[in-house]
Design a protein around this nucleic acid. Structure first.
Length: 574
RNA sequence: GCGCCCGUAGCUCAGCUGGAUAGAGCGCUGCCCUCCGGAGGCAGAGGUCAGAGGUUCGAAUCCUCUUGGGCGCGCCA
């Protein structure tokens, strides 16, 4: 299969440059861009201007030399020099026709590439604490992460998607305590439910599964004022009353329930991690101890105030970090560096972490940990996702995790549907705050981008149905021969836009920016709708009709592929 | 106080990791089906790219400073 048009131009250009400047000195990287205006052709290179200083010649002279040395190509119709020294390429109609054919043949694979070269990538996202149902913020993480995964897969990376389950630590103790207390209440025990415990209704649902619970004597006696200290004491007393095993059993019930709920929720949302990686397993497998030992061997830990500290400052962090507390328990951070080391040991070249923006201070810490354990810091890529604010009737919906008063992902999905949720979550850059307009997401109007995109797809389906109704069918041989008849401006620009898709996928992947795909699809839909309004596709002329149908089918294919990357369905009818 | 992110049309945002005259959608003004789905399309008005310096052939984009907003600075996870 022939290379994408852009690659063809790149090849031509680098050949020409190699011929003109045989000297092996470092030349600036080739940059081929789409022109904004077709007045300047279709592709443009600034290479002559980049070389000007190095060669001590004027950009336009250099450009002339390069153009002179440019090999012939049936894909290029014209090359000229413009402005300060741009080399502009105008593609031959043939190039577009070949690309259209390629779209039709490649089907769902159009846009895919081997950019990644089977590189092993570990992508960790969501990783919400299993202490309650996912809320809308997690939904954004899920949608974004899944899109990045789709992009990486489409561009030939070997992707492993992971959800890190924080099933160890104090938060889990608190959820277990919360469940237990609710179980007591369900049996008629009267007491004030602690403010710091988990308030959500789901806690009572889980408590109902627990069956009978017995109130230990003096459970609430002489509790300290401080909320945290209060919880810790309660946990300690319940632990004593039930025994370690009894308490763990409750914890397991809570964990299983909540995790099952999260798994279902994500599954319905089209998000399917390959692995649910348990934090606890890092301790039981000895991975944490190994990491700590490695740090000690590298002489980057020390003892102070009864705790073990990691010299994070030496690796660019703001302060040193505790890895083993004075009570002997390892910290969350210790698990996390062990986890990242473990990922590397499993053979992943790139580790992509998707975290909440509130974790940005954590980046330096984990990077420091990896480096101190002898790992290259470039292997870690952290993407931060900013917060989501919901708007209903123009007003911000108040949410607070603490009081259990938050909108869950499931509620959101039920209200606006999976497609709208998936699209809205990735419409904006991940590092930008997202204002999620619930009314817009629900509206069946042209303002709603979900409908705008899906409508373009459905419209093509409708055209095909109409074609069949008239007893006609599409024939690719006829279409191929007749492609030169597609001379209308709408057709030219639609073809041009279609050929950009692989470049968009590539750019979106490299920048981990699915919103590029969204914006591209809007543009494609816009051009298609304009074309639809301006011209009839089902015309009497056999050739022209088939050619137009081919163009429209290619549009549908790209729309479908793009929506697929975003995790949004492409319905035939709406 | 220190660190990270953000500031582009009235509103919500793009701007392809330095390119040619800064773009969409909504809203506003005026239009377009005897038609394959009007859930659509066309045209117009609307900008000191927060501000000031700098880097260079060239800056909304990169670097400093100022300013406004968000977030973070635990032996929590």
């Amino acid at each position: 299969m022939r290379p994408p048009v852009k690659t063809e131009i790149e090849n031509l250009l680098s050949k020409a440059i190699g011929e003109v400047f045989t000297a092996g000195d470092a030349s600036p990287p080739l940059e081929i861009e789409r022109t904004r205006d077709t007045q300047h052709g279709h592709f443009s290179s600034n290479i002559a201007m980049r070389l000007a200083k190095m060669l001590g010649k004027s950009p336009r002279d250099i450009a002339a030399d390069i153009v002179e040395a440019l090999p012939e190509s049936d894909q290029v119709a014209a090359v000229d020099i413009a402005g300060p020294g741009f080399i502009n390429f105008r593609l031959a109609p043939d190039a577009f026709h070949a690309e259209l054919h390629k779209i039709i043949c490649a089907e769902e694979k159009y846009g895919n590439s081997d950019l990644g070269g089977k590189r092993k990538v570990n992508l960790e996202y969501v990783s919400a604490n299993p202490t309650g149902p996912l809320h809308v913020g997690h939904g954004r993480h899920a949608a974004y992460g899944a899109c990045v995964a789709n992009l990486l897969i489409a561009t030939g990376h070997d992707v492993h998607q992971e959800y890190y389950v924080n099933d160890a630590g104090r938060q889990m103790d608190i959820i277990a305590l919360s469940v237990w207390l609710r179980a007591l209440q369900a049996q008629g025990q009267k007491f004030n439910f602690p403010a710091g415990a988990y308030q959500g209704e789901y806690v009572q649902t889980i408590a109902a599964e627990l069956g009978s619970a017995e109130m230990p004597d003096g459970l609430f006696e002489a509790l300290p004022e401080d909320g945290d200290a209060q919880l810790d004491l309660l946990i300690q007393r319940v632990c004593e009353a039930l025994g370690e095993e009894g308490f763990d059993a409750i914890l397991e019930v809570a964990l299983d329930n909540i995790l099952a709920d999260i798994r279902d929720d994500l599954g319905e949302f089209g998000v399917h991690p390959d692995e649910w990686f348990s934090e606890k397993s890092l301790t039981s497998s000895g991975a944490v101890d190994r990491a700590l030992k490695l740090l000690a061997e590298n002489d980057v830990t020390y003892e102070k105030d009864g705790a073990t500290w990691f010299r994070a400052i030496d690796y660019g962090d703001e302060k040193d970090r505790v890895v083993v507390r004075d009570n002997g328990r390892t910290t969350y951070f210790a698990s996390d560096i062990a986890y990242h080391l473990h990922k590397r040991e499993r053979g992943f070249e790139d580790l992509i972490d998707i975290w909440g923006a509130d974790h940005h201070g954590y980046v330096a810490r984990v990077t420091a940990g990896l480096e101190a354990m002898g790992q290259p810091t470039e292997c870690l890529h952290v993407e931060l996702v900013q917060f989501v604010a919901l708007y209903r009737a123009g007003k911000k919906v108040q949410m607070s995790t603490r009081s259990g008063d938050f909108v869950t992902l499931r509620q959101l999905r039920e209200e606006v549907g999976n497609d709208a949720a998936r699209l809205f979550f990735v419409m904006r850059s991940n590092e930008q705050h997202l204002d999620f307009d619930l009314d817009l997401a629900k509206s069946k109007s042209n303002e709603n981008p979900v409908y705008y995109l899906q409508y373009a797809h459905a419209r093509v389906c409708s055209v095909m149905a109409q074609l069949a109704e008239r007893g006609l069918s599409w024939d690719d041989e006829t279409a191929l021969r007749a492609l030169p008849q597609l001379v209308e401006e709408h057709e030219q620009s639609l073809m041009l836009t279609l050929t950009r898709f692989p470049e968009i996928v590539e750019a979106a992947t490299l920048q981990r920016a699915p919103q590029h795909v969204v914006h591209y699809l809007k543009e494609l839909a816009q051009e298609f709708h304009a074309y639809y309004n301006a011209h009839k596709f089902i015309v009497d002329d056999d050739g022209l009709r088939n050619a137009r149908i081919m163009l429209v089918l290619a549009t549908r294919q790209v729309m479908r592929n793009g929506l697929g990357l975003l995790g949004v369905t492409a319905p035939d009818k709406m």
